[in-house]
Amino acid sequence: MYNKVVMDHFKNPRNVGEMENPDAVGEVGNPLCGDMMHIYLKVKEDKIDDISFQTFGCGSAIAVSSMLTEMAKGKSLEEAKQLSNQDIADALEGLPKNKMHCSNLGADALHQAIQDYEARRDGVKLKEPQPQRKEIHEHGEGENCYCPYCSVELDEDSPTFCSACQSDLGEEH
């Protein structure tokens, strides 16, 4: 099901655990399957000095969290902001297509932690984060539809097929 890199990070996750006195925290959940990810940061001179994670989720969610912490460690905040879900999935040498959303969760958690750091630093109150993915709904309710696998907004003309990740979707998505 998973490749060797994913299995290695799943079995031997790096940087696991809650951090004492973190400088910032990013917390995201996936409404689709109930996964949850927490990212903790220590920042020195605008660089990620230390990072750790806690994740409630499947093998790929754990592997994504672990890979993400390895990739982000030592990066400047600006560099870390550029880290995308695709970068994480590529570093893991690929995820099954119905698990691509787990890599979104990772990137979201990191970006949210950075926002939290900047807000604390600048003394600004952080706005409630807006969920990027929508709950599953029956198509035809007059709202935009998003692919449950890769979060891309679906084409109105073909709401049961995602052209971005080539997934066949049912009427509910």
């Binding site: 689709l32 399957c33 109930g34 499947c58 790929s60 969610a61 698990k99 959303h101 696998y149």
Partner: peptide, 11 residues
């Protein structure tokens, strides 16, 4: 029977 383990990601 977790949602993650199903193709549809549905609980």
């Amino acid at each position: 029977k977790s949602a993650c383990a199903t193709g549809s990601l549905r609980a």
